[in-house]
Write a protein that binds this DNA or RNA. Structure first.
Lengths: 249, 249
DNA sequence: CGGGAGATTGATTGTGATCAATCTTCGTGG
DNA sequence: CCACGAAGATTGATCACAATCAATCTCCCG
C-alpha cells in the first residue's frame, strides 16, 4: 500500500469532527480520496498567522483544534474582526473570488488546521457530487452568518450584541460536546469589541453589568451563563421593550 | 429545431450582461445549455417580493434590469437591509445552506430577473467546470462584500459610511456603463439608513452636509458627485485625522 | 387637486466613545 | 523562584455623535 510517510497525516474517516466538517453519506473510498487531498495538517502557535490579507490564495483551512479569528483592515490602520472560528469550521473562502486573501487569519491559541488545496478540492468535487454540494452549503452558511452579523452591527444595542455573542459561542461550544454554560473566552476584550463594533471598555462594562444582574458570572476569561434565557430575552428585544415602558411611565 | 415557445426566453450569448454574469471562455454550446437551464425571466413591479425569508429555496436570481434589496428581519419587527442589487448581480445564495431563504428580496423599481433553478445549475456545473468555478467565485465575492459591510458597520462614522456607500454605488453604476457621478437613488433614505446602520434623519442630515460642503449635489433622489475624491479621503480616514488634529489644538 | 408618504430641519436626549487612573495577570529574564 | 515590566481589564468622569421627538415641507401618485 503506497502510504505517504507524512509526519502528521490526518484521516477524515476517523476524525471526531467528521459530522461537523463533512457531508453524510460518504463511503470508505470517498474518505480515501479526501485524505489524499489534505496535504497535511498544520500546527500554529498562539498569535501565528495562518494567512495574511493580500497573500495568494491556495488553500482553505479547516480548524481541527484551537481557536482562530479573521480580520480585515483599512488603509488607516483600523481593523475589524470578521469572525471567530472553532473546530470543524472553515476559513479562507474569501480568497476564492480574486485568488487572493482579503483578510488575516490568526490563531488565538495553539492549534491545528487541515490544509485543503483549493484546486484539488474543486477537482475532487467534480467526482464526488456530495462533496461539491456540501461545499456550496458551507459557503452559503458563511453568507447566512455574515447576514446575522450585519443585523447585529446595524440594529442592536451594546447589551444585545454582547448577549447574542455569548449565546452564539455557547451554542457552538455545546454542538462540539463542551459545556454550554461554562467556558473560557479565547479572545481579548478588544477583539470581542472589534467583532461587535464596540470599544473594549464598553465590552468590559457590559460584562460587569450582566454579572451584577446575575445573568452571568465573569472571572476574567472564564464565563458562566447563569440565566441564558435572560440573555435570550435581551436579544429578542423583550428587555428593551419593557425597559422603555418603564422609562415612559 | 425544438425551441420552446416560452413567452419571454432569454439568450445568455447575446445578453449585454454577459461579461458581468458569466465566465470568460464560454463557447456556443455552453451558452445553449445554460439557456436551457434558465426557466424563464420573471418581471416584477416596484415593491413586489422575489422571495420571502422562510420560503423554500428553489432558484437563484440574476438581475437583468431594475434594482433590488435584500433584508433580514428579527422576531421583534426590526429589519436590516443586507444589500442592494443591480443588473448582473446574483440574489438568493443564502438559501443554499438550509434549502430555505433567510432574507426577503424586494424590487425597488420595476425590473426583471433570470431565474436559475439551483439543482439544474449544480448539474450543469458538473459538466461545465468553468461555470462551476465561476459560481464559486460569485459566492466568494458575496462573502468579501459582506466583510466590507461589516467593516463599515463596525468601524465607520456616519459620514464615512455614507461616503463609502455613494462611492460604491458610483463604481458599480460606472461598471455598467452609466455615469459614475450622476445618478438616481432607487431606495428611500430609510432603506439607506437600514443598510448603513443609521436612522433616516441621520442619512438626510449627512447628505445635506455633503451638499453644503460642495462634495455632492443633492436634489431629492438625484445625486451628483462633485468631488468624489473628497468622499474617498473621508472613507480613507484623512478627513477624520485632520479634524482630530484641529480639535486637539 | 388633494392626500399621504417621504424628506428636511431643529431641539433635546441618551448611548457608547474617549480620556484617564488603577488593578490584575502573565510572560520574561535575572 | 521571584521581581519586573508590559499587556490586558476594570472602573470612573466627561464628551460627542447619532437617536429620538417633533414640526414643517415637498413631491408624487391617485
Amino acid at each position: 500500500m503506497p502510504k505517504s510517510p507524512c509526519h502528521h497525516k490526518t484521516e477524515c474517516a476517523h476524525c471526531s469532527l467528521r459530522e461537523l466538517c463533512l457531508p453524510v453519506g460518504f463511503r470508505a473510498d470517498d474518505f480515501r480520496q479526501l485524505d489524499d487531498l489534505i496535504r497535511q495538517s498544520r500546527r500554529l502557535k498562539k498569535g501565528e498567522h495562518l494567512f495574511h490579507a493580500g497573500e495568494n490564495f491556495v488553500s482553505l483551512y479547516a480548524v481541527r483544534t484551537g481557536f482562530f479569528k479573521t480580520a480585515v483592515g483599512t488603509q488607516d490602520g483600523r481593523d475589524q474582526v470578521t469572525g471567530f472560528f472553532m473546530s470543524g469550521e472553515l476559513m479562507g473562502m474569501d480568497g476564492i473570488y480574486a485568488n487572493r486573501h482579503t483578510c488575516d487569519a490568526v490563531a488565538l491559541e495553539d492549534g491545528e488546521v487541515c490544509e485543503l488545496p483549493f484546486d484539488c478540492l474543486e477537482e475532487l468535487g467534480r467526482r464526488l457530487p456530495l462533496l461539491h454540494t456540501h461545499f456550496m452549503r458551507l459557503m452559503s452558511r458563511e453568507i447566512v452568518r455574515d447576514q446575522s452579523v450585519m443585523l447585529l452591527l446595524g440594529n442592536m444595542r451594546a447589551e444585545e450584541r454582547l448577549a447574542a455573542f455569548l449565546l452564539n459561542l455557547s451554542q457552538r461550544l455545546h454542538a462540539r460536546g463542551f459545556a454550554a454554560n461554562d467556558f473560557i473566552l479565547r479572545m481579548s476584550r478588544e477583539e470581542i469589541g472589534s467583532f461587535l463594533g464596540l470599544k473594549l471598555e464598553t465590552v468590559s462594562r457590559t460584562l460587569s453589568r450582566f454579572n451584577q444582574e446575575g445573568w452571568i458570572a465573569v472571572e476574567h476569561k472564564h464565563i458562566r451563563l447563569l440565566r441564558p434565557h435572560a440573555l435570550q430575552d435581551l436579544v429578542s428585544g423583550y428587555e428593551s421593550r419593557s425597559r422603555n415602558s418603564i422609562t415612559r411611565i
